[in-house]
Design a protein around this nucleic acid. Structure first.
Length: 345
DNA sequence: AACCTAAGCAACCGCGATGAC
DNA sequence: TGTCATCGCGGTTGCTTAGGT
């Protein structure tokens, strides 16, 4: 049985033969596809127009990039998916040479499983399990606990008690340092807008990171907020605050977005930042995402998760990082947070 | 070598959006 | 304004292949 659009035609189904591919390529390269429903007849194919279109878009187009996805592409998919959800066509716009079908298949066969294995909900990108459960599973009961889920490249989950955060500044070389910014889609003039960065709640502003900077985190007692600062490595002590963020079990939340944006813009100006900011006003979806970051995890109100005397600072830091390049190091000493670094150890 | 299983991928299906009439 | 054809997208299916036993 053919498609409804070509049920009257006798059409072939299944895999395309090289001869069929050649016919379709020859026809489209010389004539263009025009009306897809007429393509099979004009090209001499026993296929329906829909099948021809799909074959061309997903496989025969000359600008397609074949082969496995790079770490950067994987990173991009995760980041955009966090914002737009299962909008594969929109995600694919950020990956030149990749099709929505390809992105979708890669997500379902690879990324989705990785995220689940890391205890992250692939739909919401939030934690599936309570942080303490993850810690217990790792059999690490030290007060300064780092739970880098083994062999899982895209997430880092760690917790520490309040006093340590107060006593020590956390110097965390971000795993995103080597990753380039989220590229704009090839054509931003069409109806598909670049995804807004507004409301990204589960991650620090990775796209603005620079190898010359390290993250420093302090905790504000009154507001129960953690303030993240970017500190210039070459002039330690001269910090450039990016925060404040509220750090909650769901991740980071920017409390003063304009402050962050202005500061970041001065550090790492992005060409498309203005467009992104405009889009922030329109992007209701992302507002919802931002609200989600305030929502409960395991039924607890976020405010309640910060005990005034002793709360666990929990950072969910999910982002793409190829296996092996982001080995996470931890010290078990009481001052270990000072020594938490990514990389060489 | 044969069988089984899971992963990866190409293709199909169904539905909503859009535009022409 | 309603109907129909077409397009585009997301979800799903099923085939192929690689790896393990």
């Amino acid at each position: 049985m053919g498609h409804h659009c070509c049920s009257k035609q006798k059409v072939k189904r299944g895999l395309w033969s090289p001869e069929e591919d050649e016919k379709l390529i020859r026809y489209i390269t010389t004539n263009g596809h025009g009306c897809w429903s007429s393509v099979p007849k004009l090209a001499g194919l026993q296929r329906c127009g829909k099948s021809c279109r799909l074959r061309w878009i997903n496989y025969l187009r000359p600008d397609l990039k074949r082969g496995s996805f790079s770490a950067q592409e994987e990173r991009t998919i995760i980041d955009v998916h966090r914002i737009v959800g299962n909008k594969w066509a929109q995600i694919a716009k950020y990956l030149p040479g990749r099709t929505d079908n390809e992105v979708k298949n890669f997500w379902n066969s690879c990324i989705k499983k990785k995220l689940i294995a890391q205890g992250l909900d692939p739909n919401t990108h939030h934690l599936l399990l309570p942080i303490d459960q993850i810690n217990n599973n790792n059999n690490n009961t030290n007060a300064c606990t780092l739970s880098h889920i083994h062999q899982q490249p895209t997430a880092l989950v760690f917790s520490s008690n309040t006093q340590m955060i107060k006593d020590a500044k956390m110097d965390m070389k971000s795993p995103f340092l080597t990753l380039p910014p989220l590229p704009p889609p090839p054509d931003t003039s069409n109806s598909i807008h670049p995804p807004s960065l507004h409301g990204i709640s589960a991650i620090p502003p990775f796209e603005f990171l620079n190898p010359n900077y390290v993250w420093m985190t302090t905790v504000s007692d009154q507001n129960q907020h953690a303030v993240m600062e970017l500190v210039n490595r070459s002039s330690m002590g001269r910090s450039t605050p990016i925060g404040p963020y509220q750090i909650n079990p769901s991740g980071f939340e920017v409390l003063e977005e304009n402050y962050m944006r202005d500061t970041i813009a001065s550090l790492e100006p992005r060409k498309q930042l203005e467009g992104v900011q405009q889009q922030q006003e329109e992007d209701k979806v992302c507002e919802g995402k931002a609200d989600n970051s305030k929502e409960l995890r395991n039924g607890e109100n976020i405010d309640n998760s910060f005990d005034s005397c002793s709360f666990d600072l929990e950072l969910e830091y999910s982002g793409l990082l190829p296996c092996g390049t982001g080995m996470y190091c931890s010290s078990t000493s009481s001052s270990c947070i000072d020594q938490l670094t990514w990389g060489d150890c």
